[in-house]
Design a protein around this nucleic acid. Structure first.
Lengths: 244, 244
DNA sequence: TGAATAAAAATTGTATACGATCTCTGATTG
DNA sequence: CAATCAGAGATCGTATACAATTTTTATTCA
């Protein structure tokens, strides 16, 4: 009894295929499944992704698994070390800063574009998305909520209909998910919803300037919700260095 | 009698490895060689890159060639079609616009960052780079001149020391090279040098604002140097459609 | 006991083989 | 003569096998 593929999943699949130069055929499926698992925090940063093991799970040979892992490495979700294999990426504090700096530059510009061209249909879709996010949050399914929260941003990029920016944002959102898994310090995860709703308001009014400004604040707010202070060099540095 | 690897090449290699998640081992070499060939316009957009052929040339098996081509596909230099193979990418007019819109947003911000932290040593390096560019231009080696001209931009990203932006810019510059190959309309290719020298001036004064503004103008100027008008639907559309 | 070493196991890197798909050529037919 | 179709050849997608490297384990010696 296989779960039928939903239209939303098909949609995402075709979009991803357009935007990224993802592998084709079976490798794409594995890619998406691994990606989803990582983005929902079912696979923790640093976890080893053995080729044999992944192949076993998805019933594929190492050849296609390798292609998938390579693709994920390019989008920043996986890091590959020569002769050692693939691991769920573990962004450094520095990379975390860089990712949110990049998002703070790009996403507001894209939100501005999106506000100028959004259709009623797309507005409704975004609304439905927020509802789903709310439902997941209410069901305490944090993994799914986070996944959907990220998707909200990529959907805006798709609405702006700018493939280059959309590809960049997709990669940045993916990395952000890992960064949040590692460095999130706030307890009120629900705070996102507020910003997202404010953004919806701006979209409904087709107010480009407001959308840009709200999105910028939102990203900066997310950035400030991370605990990105370098640990003091004394305490953990030795043990860290030895087990690293 | 093998040509020794220059320090500049080694440098680029290690940098690329950091920034992109490039394949490792032999695949990396093939990647860089193909990339260089494409960026110097020795391989034209649309050209087929047969796996067997490439493997023959570089003395590698299809396995590593495939990994290389996949990597290049991820950076936008190569497009892969299922069951048909890999081709040197042929950016559409739309993609050309998008690439330069992205550059116009990102590169000025990065130039600003770079101006704030550039060292004297790096200034000297950039000067040397401009000299090499000038020399290539004087020797009518357009391929090399264009390659170097692109590298100037990635070097600025490296100076800004922002890996995420640097990776984005590298990809954008690569695509730009293809776009220029397809759509450049100006005869005075040397115009770039002027902007680059102006930028150097700003860097020497550590004038962030000027660097940002000059870079923005430079990108917009490049964008306007392209012939990106859609061809009228009547004339060439049929023949184009048939031979496409 | 603990460190150093060497052999064994596991994992990745690469080559090759085979099946699937596409492309091209040439014959056939209206 | 043009268009269609069939088959051969070429090319890609995937699985598997072997080589190279790393990791683990067992052993030895101080």
């Amino acid at each position: 009894m296989t779960k039928p593929v939903t239209s939303a999943e098909l949609d995402q699949r075709s979009k991803l295929h357009e935007v990224f130069a993802l592998p084709q055929g079976r490798a794409l499926d594995i890619c998406l499944k691994l990606q989803k698992a990582i983005l929902e925090h079912r696979l923790s940063p640093g976890l080893k992704l053995s080729e044999d093991e992944v192949g076993e799970i998805y019933g594929a040979s190492r050849t296609v698994v390798r292609a998938s892992l390579q693709a994920l490495a390019h989008s920043g979700l996986v890091s590959m070390e020569k002769n050692r294999g693939a691991f769920v990426a573990k962004p450094s504090i520095r990379e975390a800063h860089e990712v949110f700096q990049a998002r703070a530059l790009i996403e507001p510009a894209v939100a501005r574009l999106a506000a100028a061209v959004i259709t009623d249909r797309q507005l409704a879709q975004l609304h439905a998305h927020l509802d789903a996010e709310h439902a997941a949050l209410h069901a305490s399914d944090m993994g799914k909520a986070l996944f959907l929260s990220g998707n909200f941003h990529t959907e805006i990029a798709d609405i702006a209909d700018h493939r280059i920016f959309a590809g960049m944002i997709r990669s940045l959102i993916s990395r952000s998910s890992l960064i949040i898994a590692l460095y999130w310090k706030r307890s009120d995860t629900a705070c996102e919803s507020h910003s997202h709703h404010a953004l919806m308001n701006a979209f409904e009014k087709r107010d480009s300037a407001a959308a840009e400004s709200i999105q910028k604040s939102h990203i900066i707010d997310l950035h400030s919700g991370l605990d990105l202070k370098e640990k003091p060099a004394g305490g953990t540095s030795l043990s860290e260095a030895l087990q690293g």
